[in-house]
Nucleic acid binder design. Sequence first.
DNA 1: CTTAAATTGATAGTATTACTATTACATTTG
DNA 2: CAAATGTAATAGTAATACTATCAATTTAAG
Lengths: 226, 226
Amino acid sequence: MDQLLANIKIQVNDKIYVKDPETTTLGRKIIKNSLIMMDEIGFDNFTFKKLGELIGSNESSIYRYFENKHKLLVYLSSWYWSWIEYKMVFATANITAPLDQLLKALEIVTEKIEDDQNTPYINEALLNKIIIAEFTKTFLTKEVDEENKEGFFLIYKRVINRMAAMVILIAPAYPYSKSLISSIVEGALHQHFLKDHFKTITDCNEMVSPSDFYKHLIQHLLSPKS
Amino acid sequence: MDQLLANIKIQVNDKIYVKDPETTTLGRKIIKNSLIMMDEIGFDNFTFKKLGELIGSNESSIYRYFENKHKLLVYLSSWYWSWIEYKMVFATANITAPLDQLLKALEIVTEKIEDDQNTPYINEALLNKIIIAEFTKTFLTKEVDEENKEGFFLIYKRVINRMAAMVILIAPAYPYSKSLISSIVEGALHQHFLKDHFKTITDCNEMVSPSDFYKHLIQHLLSPKS
DNA sequence: CTTAAATTGATAGTATTACTATTACATTTG
DNA sequence: CAAATGTAATAGTAATACTATCAATTTAAG
């Protein structure tokens, strides 16, 4: 799978960017270093001017790729979920038992990510940290509805619907498949945050991962006895 | 309970404000109208200058109450969770069966809120909408750890721990009481958001509430059979 | 009831942010 | 080699996020 991932171009809605950053050196530099900088100072303190200074490039050059920093974050998120979706489809393709399939998918959306080395200008470990800390900001805006119509969140929603479909295969009578999965996907990011910042309201830590918690939840909730 | 609430002063950590807004007319005006304005234009577009114009007061006067808009949001959140905690303690006090107690508490943290009329300058229905849309922004910052040390999120964490304690009473062997509750409390806000903006990834709608989903979850997860 | 203290309003000012526009130069590609 | 594309530099605007100062007003204390 590592080899295959190297040959796949992650798809991102082209309305998100002004110019596709994957096509030029500067574009890739923007992506790579925006990850480093956002991780370091956070999205709120991040500006195109600072990024320009970091990469020895002009602020206005960055505006040629992204309208504003919000769109850049939407781009990074979209890339992330597209990459997750790819990993998920691939990892679950050969699994026949629906429950095992769901557990595998669950692992992929809830685990802590390591850099996968196949995308030279995207450090997935960093990106995962940024998603944990900043993803909700992409849609908690007054412009959500418009941006949703433009399809900015399509891949994210597709990932959730794929998993919800697996839930239905396992437990056709369970009435909350979508809410369960959207709750888990969002919740996993939240639990990662809690274990780093609000340790007193989570059971997750070095030994227990959000994956463990949610696997247990799924198994007890969807097992045939209940 | 409505009567009693009228006589209780909701406690908010005094490090959050420069000057207690509950003590003056202008302070109460700031709170009341910041709710109206944030609901209308969202936290990101909200500024003290705009608020000043709305209440016919000067920007600099508002800075005498709150250092910045972030602190104001932290204040509103803190007030909200304090109010929720009060309602929860009160509503569960007479319930002896632990499961019923938890279900009642669950209802309080997950239900859509109506204005309770007892706090003249705080419209709880509006505040609830703002919490759904903006609460995560209070802690998804680079300053979380410092602010957490200052106790800005204490009440929120206490609400979660109260409920986690109920879970332990019901199912002493269940190993994820804190993660379950923190996941639910955050998740309920998220489900409310989804039903208004991303309808395709939730089962919640006019007929089915986030409370229904989570009550079902808790009952199936903590029932003695599993 | 008067005086001091606290509160508010008005004005002004600074640094930073979030852009847009223009022009010139450099590089790649056909 | 010419055209197209990409980049850098500069300048400029409007808004944001404050701080400082001072005068006017309100309130509270003796």
